[in-house]
Design a protein around this nucleic acid. Structure first.
Lengths: 349, 349
DNA sequence: AGCCTTTTCGCAATCGTTTGCACGTGCTAG
DNA sequence: CTAGCACGTGCAAACGATTGCGAAAAGGCT
């Protein structure tokens, strides 16, 4: 038999008042003694007694009360499309670890790509007093959620996506350099007819990488044929398969394909197999993101590795900076992706 | 030039008081009108006016204040070892989606397997007024964090791990049935000398699956040779490689290996390759978890799929139930894993 | 010794909500 | 016709921490 009465009464949680009574001073004194910023206002001997008592009684401050009083919850919100997409956990760890060091806590919300729901989330976040927001949602322009934040004056840092105006900080990876490296790699292998499976046109990465592809092709003196670019309907494996089918449908020959994303690359891989084309013998394939385990699939995927964790950490640092000084200039930092050459790319035949 | 003064002043956030002034009634009336539970105490016409005004002014309640007053934050904490381990995101999504429906929010913390830090996390959670905790950390017994929770009367639900006593609810997958299915599958393929790469002995899953392995072998009338069981030092790929090396060191022949985890299986795959053994020709291999992309590696991994998302959802449901009625009996629910047969298992030669 | 500065601490208001209680209507029933 | 009841609303006290202000004590200076 479990002792339920005890279980029910166990809820204690020492408060400032109790601590004050225990030490024999006023609550305000205890409060100041506990806060390193204000501790110098208190006599060293009293401060020591307070600290000791706090430690003894296992005092943990009630952050709700503090947040209510100060209007600062030491909480930031993270908004992503879907936690189960393996791209996001490293972002989040980077953010969390950095935030932790500054005494902040993150709350994470998934939007599943639903624009309207994103706004709802922002409101919920606001109700929870978030000091700021880090958004890794994919939309490019016309994003109501960021509009809501700007309007309400909530600091926002974008991650893995930019935005039109310069009112918002962002940390992105250098898609231009990444795609250029991929194109260069393929060109060096002798490929000339290179296709691109682009991400959805309404996404930031979709547009950026497509533009980067066109630029890189041009820089290499290759024809940047629009017919060799297909837009995927989403960043998923099935979308990649469909995109490849559409590409084949056009009848334009190509010996290499750069996908805007590893998932698209995997879908393309399936589509190529269905069409009787082997990778890399018939078509070389390069992805983007270096997801876990793509180094162990058959064939191992050549791809662009993004510094996911570091991007998250940087985004958090920027947000903390802007929280400390709201006047600070907004900035966009770019991190270099790295081309990881594996078995899915080979010399053109 | 950005208008910084506006940015600074934009922080408005309508409060109950402002709403009350706008409608011309007392704050308490507004509060009651807004709460569906108490709305019937208010005249229907007034209630309608309040609702309209709330909508118009975009009122969102300050959850900090509400939490402070009621002592209920509608927040639950999730404690996991590491978000970047692909096992956990589905758990978390399951939890979040279920919690969302009940108006709860989750805050996630990573312990990185550090026992002491886990306690710190529990304290931080407590300071944030969490109504309960869901813990997916791996430890079996002697876990200080759950002790802390029981002591403080914080409701806890364990996920993917059990605990000695019956004071805590848990949702786990049926390791016994899962391992039995794997053994049966291998036996049917003609294997008789089956080895097991067990998880660390201090983990719940490590112990359970090892015991399940012994039981299943016995049930199949096969020798359950302790020499064919190696403990890995962690649930990682390198640990799997080392475990396999240790197993080979013993010199006992085996034609099949069941790993306690997909990561261990991948490490074992590496180790086997190094030793010049091919999978599945020389050794059949089965993993546990069905991580993303293990269906696309070479060879595709036969593994046990556990219902990650559903387990998370169930854990959240249980916690919500216990929050609603603390007297409710604790329970342990078991979900069936499913054997997914792929290319890494083949008939014994 | 008297005055002024500094240090150390207490007082009390405040953040925005919730909720037990009391007060005032209008109504029904006896 | 009035006692009594239900209903709708206002009043005010919490919840626990922070902080400007003022007061007392301590110390330094001429």
């Amino acid at each position: 038999m479990v002792d339920r009465s005890q279980r029910a009464t166990a809820r204690k949680a020492t408060t400032l008042k109790q601590l004050a009574a225990h030490v024999g001073v006023h609550v305000s004194t205890v409060s100041r003694a506990l806060n390193p910023e204000t501790r110098n206002l208190i006599g060293p001997e009293v401060a020591k007694r307070v600290l000791a008592a706090a430690n003894e009684l296992g005092y943990v401050p009630n952050s709700m009360a503090a947040a209510l009083r100060t209007g600062q919850s030491r909480t930031v919100g993270i908004l992503i499309p879907d936690l189960m997409n393996p791209v996001f956990p490293p972002f989040i760890r980077g953010i969390q670890d950095t935030l932790d060091g500054a005494g902040y806590t993150a709350i994470i919300a998934n939007s599943d790509g639903d624009k309207d729901y994103e706004r709802v989330i922002v409101q919920k976040m606001q109700a929870r007093f978030v000091a700021g927001l880090i958004m890794a949602t994919a939309l490019y322009r016309d994003d109501p959620a960021v509009g809501e934040c700007i309007e309400k004056g909530i600091p926002v840092v974008l991650i893995n996506r930019g935005v039109d105006n310069r009112e918002i900080s962002a940390v992105v990876s250098d898609d231009g350099a990444g795609i250029a490296a991929a194109v260069e790699h393929l060109v060096r292998l002798g490929h000339r007819r290179i296709a691109h499976a682009a991400g959805p046109p309404e996404t930031y990465t979709g547009m950026m990488r497509r533009r980067a592809f066109l630029n890189a092709m041009q820089a290499s003196g290759l024809p940047a044929d629009e017919d060799l670019i297909v837009f995927a309907s989403g960043y998923t494996v099935p979308a990649g398969r469909e995109a490849l089918a559409a590409l084949l449908e056009r009848g334009k020959p190509f010996s290499a394909l750069i996908a805007a994303n590893d998932q698209l690359a995997l879908g393309a891989l399936d589509g190529l197999a269905e069409a009787g084309l082997r990778v890399p013998r018939d078509v070389s394939l390069v992805g983007f993101n270096d997801m876990p385990l793509v180094d162990r699939i058959d064939p191992p995927l050549t791809t662009l590795r993004i510094q996911h964790y570091e991007m998250g950490a940087e985004a958090a640092r920027i947000l903390l900076d802007e929280l400390a000084d709201p006047q600070r200039d907004r900035r966009t930092v770019m991190l270099e992706p790295q081309l990881i050459v594996r078995g899915s790319t080979a010399p053109a035949t």
